[in-house]
Structures are given as structure tokens and as C-alpha cells.
Design a binder for these strands. Structure first.
Length: 458
RNA sequence: GUGGUUGUAGCUCAGCUGGUUAGAGCGCCGGAUUGUGGUUCCGGAGGUCGCCGGUUCGAACCCGGUCUUCCACCCCA
């Protein structure tokens, strides 16, 4: 019995036009990754569970897809665990592998495993799918691509400066103007928590602060109170809610607030360095903004935090993010290797380009010329011709069967082919072929002996 | 994981308080047009109304479950 086929929630098929568009984005990102000196690596789709679990916080663990063990896994579970009906204790006994959740943690694992063959500083890029057992929404999928570039083994702030330039280069090339690169620093957040006397509640404090532009000052303060942050502490943090001015002005305000926090002042100094060097270099189409409310990836970021917002008016979550993690490889046993990196969200960039109609029009063209098929003899001559054209670098195809000409023209239309070739009995007799421009309707005759002459049309 | 929302032809959607054979536009196929597409005209095919169950004389419509979509949380690319 035929069943209706389906694909899992949050996954997608990609048809030719979509793959072309995705490749267009990937090629652009890849090109700039390479030009900045990054080298490609790839890691497996799935990792040992203990490589991933515990690296993304409790919430992250929940979203990791776990892979069932092979074989008769259930009989190996002891009775107590089996009858406990507790997923948390049962899961590790029946699942030892998991789909990767991002590219950063597997990269850290890679660096540790290959430390003796890597030349540091190591700049790598990686473009692969990752999986999250999240509830899908627009721009949120359970399988999606990340395009990451990271540097390990160098703690110069010039790396951060470079990543800002890299974001600018890619988004400029894609024609995605006015993206905002938001910049913050974990040390500033730590400093704030320290100054207001809430160091032990750093995460709660920053997660609430992160929502400022979304739910407003009042609700943020309510959430802070509910998390156990004292009214006094919130009062001390109040300058954060009213930060104004450009990046340098905001940094001045932060200095006043953080003057008694060594770590906070260090964060301010780092931000200042990145902003001022970037200012000197200039940016093509993006804007770099300090945003003290930005609090992402706190489970491992220790310095800079990046997030890229789509141009104003586009309703889409962040299209990129990243930051510095001083000791990510530490959990895998390699101490004191600093890393910093960024990620491009391919699937979201796609949606934004689509919404703003920024894909080049000729992406849909998969063929330069289609040769129509007039019959057996003509078809033989035609296939010889298109083989010549292919050698010239022209994407050429022959309509395979001798069906009615209007139908063949319609097919050419639908394939978005700019030129068709007519090679019928009369042309064959003249040792010639006719090229028709499908946009203007103009036709021009060429000699079969000199097919290269049609290059003039391109 | 919590709460809500959506699903009708390939696509976008109509379909009244439950009432015979579920409609339109676009697309598709055929013809007008056997060597000229995009325009026009004529004709045609295509539906387990997401799926399973229930209520009812009768369900696309009401109820329950489930899957899917999107939204708000959570979190995040």
C-alpha cells in the first residue's frame, strides 16, 4: 500500500533553484574565508555523546539529538534503570552517540586530537550541517548549516578586528547592506555583575539584560528581581538601561560604572581597542555597535561576543554570531589555547536575501544554450555541435527527443535558457545552425565549421 | 519542554449556523499552430478536504488524539 511520504519536522528538501542560491551564498562566504587565510576542515556528523553533552548548558543538552545504540541495546540496561522510567538515567545507557549541535565544540575536540600536527596559530573554516531538537519556527530548523571561521592559538585582539572585517566583506558582497555587527565583552558583563554585587548571578543577570530591546526596561527589572537580584544591585546597574551615544561615548559611560572592577576595565579596554582599530580601517556596508545587553554563548565565551543583526525592518533572528573562548580546549585536556571565531547562519541569510530580493537574477540559469531536436540526422549533427560548445565552456544541452517544436521552445523558456539553437534539415544541408536569442527573438546563422563564432553572443 | 495556531487540486486560496455530484485563479496536459516559445481562444486531467477515531440521519465544517506549519516562551544560526 502506497504511503504518503513525508520528511521530519524542521527539515527541508532543496530543489535546483534553492541549491543554486544556497551555493551562491556558500561560495561567497568560502571565498572570503580563504582570502582571510582560513583553511577548511570537516568533522563527523555525529560525535561521542560525552564530547557534546555538558558543553552547552542544561538547555543545550536537551536540544542535542541522541542516537540510539545499535544491536539489542535495551537488554543491556540494568533492571533498576529500566524500570525507573527516568529518561536522564536511561538515555546514557542506550545512547552513546549524538548529532553535532554546532561546529565549535567538535572543532575544539579536533584541535586537541590533532594538536601535534597543527601549526599554531591555526585558522580554520568549516561549512557543515548541525542539528538541534528545537521546536521549528521561521528561520529555525532542526537541521541547518553553520559556516564557521575560528582562530586558535593567538590571543591578539587583531583577530577580533579581522572577524569584523570578514563579516563586512561577506555581507557587502552579498549586497546585504546595513547589517549591524553587535559587539560586547564577557569581561564587561562580569565586571558589571561584580560592581553591583551580583557576581554569583551573572548568567541570570545577563540573560535578563539581553532582553532589554525586546521586552523593555520594566520587564527586565522584574525578571531580575524574580531571579533573586537585589533592588540595590539593579539600581546600581541602571546606567546600562540608558546607555546612549556612539561606541566611544558608551565606552566612557562604562568606564565610570566599572572603575572599581579590574576585569570590567579590562573588558572596556578590549572593546576600545577593537572599535578604534576598526574605525581606522573603516567598514564598507556594515555598522559595528557596542551593545552591552548582548549576552550569547556565555557557557564558553570569555572575551568578545559578536552577533549580527539583519538590516532594520527584516524580521529575523541573528544571522551570525561568535566570540572569544579562552579555554574551550581545556575541557578536552589542552590548556591555555585561546580561540576566537564567528559563524554565518546560511539558512537565515538565505531567507533575508530572498525577502529583500537580493539574489542575482541569472542564478536561475542552469543552461546557456538548448539545441532543439528536429529528427534523427539533425540530432546527430546537434550532439556533435553541443559537444564542441561544451568544450568552449558553454553550458549546452540537446533536447533529447524529436517532439514538436513549440513544446521544445516552451521547455527552453521554463529552463530560463537565454539562447536556443535550431539545426533542422535546411541548416544541415547548408552546414549551418541558427541561434535564437530567447529574450529579443533575434536569430543569427552560424557555420557548423566554426561553432566558436557564437561566443560573440555571450 | 510549555501555551497557542495552521492544514481543502502541483501552487495561492474560496467553501455561509453541519445538508446532494467540494469550487476559483495560476500551473499542468491536449487542440487552434507537423520549423518558432512568451500573448490569445477552446477543451481536458487532477481531491482518501493532513491522518486516525468519535458525535450525528448526514462532517471539509463539531469533539478527541496525532502529524505538520507558523507564533509566543525557553533557547538560538
Amino acid at each position: 500500500m502506497a504511503q504518503k511520504p513525508s520528511i521530519p519536522k524542521g527539515t527541508r528538501d532543496f530543489s535546483p533553484a534553492e541549491v543554486e542560491k544556497r551555493n551562491y551564498i556558500i561560495n561567497s562566504i568560502k571565498k572570503h574565508f580563504k582570502s582571510f587565510g582560513f583553511q577548511p576542515i570537516e568533522t563527523p556528523s555525529f560525535e561521542n555523546s560525552d564530547t557534546l553533552l555538558g558543553k552547552y548548558g542544561e538547555e543545550g543538552d536537551r536540544l542535542i539529538f541522541k542516537i540510539l545504540n545499535s544491536g539489542d541495546f535495551i537488554s543491556k540496561v540494568d533492571d533498576v534503570t529500566y524500570s525507573s522510567k527516568n529518561s536522564n538515567s536511561l538515555a546514557p545507557k542506550i545512547s552513546e552517540k549524538a548529532l553535532k549541535y554546532d561546529l565549535t565544540v567538535p572543532f575544539a575536540r579536533y584541535v586537541v586530537m590533532h594538536q601535534n600536527e597543527i601549526d599554531f596559530p591555526f585558522k580554520r573554516y568549516q561549512i557543515q550541517p548541525v542539528w538541534r531538537a528545537d521546536r521549528p519556527q521561521k528561520g529555525r530548523f532542526r537541521e541547518f548549516y553553520q559556516c564557521d571561521a575560528d582562530v586558535v592559538g593567538a590571543n591578539s585582539l587583531l583577530q577580533e578586528v579581522e572577524f569584523v572585517q570578514l563579516y563586512d566583506a561577506v555581507f557587502t558582497e552579498l549586497g546585504l547592506k546595513n547589517c549591524t555587527i553587535k559587539l560586547n565583552n564577557r569581561k564587561v558583563l562580569s565586571g558589571i555583575a561584580e560592581v553591583i554585587g551580583a557576581s554569583d548571578l551573572l548568567i541570570d543577570f545577563t540573560v535578563a539584560l539581553d532582553k532589554l530591546d525586546k521586552i523593555g526596561e520594566v520587564k527586565v527589572k522584574e525578571e531580575m528581581v524574580s531571579k533573586g537580584i537585589s533592588a540595590n544591585a539593579i539600581e546600581k546597574a541602571s546606567p546600562l538601561f540608558t546607555m546612549k551615544g556612539n561606541s566611544f561615548e558608551q565606552l566612557e559611560q562604562l568606564k565610570d560604572l566599572l572603575v572599581h572592577s579590574e576585569i570590567g576595565m579590562q573588558g572596556v579596554a578590549e572593546l576600545h581597542e577593537i572599535v578604534s582599530v576598526t574605525n581606522t580601517l573603516g567598514l564598507q556596508t556594515t555598522q559595528l555597535e557596542i551593545d552591552v545587553t548582548l549576552a550569547r554563548g556565555l557557557n564558553y565565551y570569555t572575551g568578545a561576543i559578536f552577533e549580527v543583526a539583519a538590516p532594520e525592518g527584516v524580521k529575523m533572528g541573528s544571522i551570525g554570531g561568535g566570540g572569544r573562548y579562552d579555554d574551550l580546549t581545556g575541557i578536552f585536556g589542552l590548556k591555555d589555547v585561546s580561540g576566537v571565531g564567528i559563524s554565518f547562519g546560511l539558512d537565515r541569510i538565505y531567507l533575508v536575501l530572498e525577502e529583500l530580493d537580493l539574489f542575482p537574477k541569472n542564478i536561475a540559469q542552469s543552461l546557456d544554450v538548448l539545441c532543439l531536436n528536429f529528427g534523427k540526422e539533425e540530432g546527430r549533427a546537434a550532439i556533435a555541435l553541443i559537444m564542441e560548445l561544451r568544450k568552449l565552456g558553454i553550458r549546452a544541452d540537446l533536447y533529447p527527443t524529436n517532439t514538436k517544436i513549440p513544446k521544445q521552445f516552451k521547455y527552453a523558456d521554463k529552463r530560463n535558457v537565454p539562447f536556443t539553437i535550431l539545426l533542422g534539415a535546411s541548416e544541415l544541408e547548408n552546414r549551418s545552425f541558427v541561434v535564437k536569442n530567447m529574450t529579443s527573438g533575434e536569430q543569427k546563422e552560424f557555420s557548423l565549421e566554426q561553432p566558436e563564432a557564437i561566443l560573440e553572443l555571450f
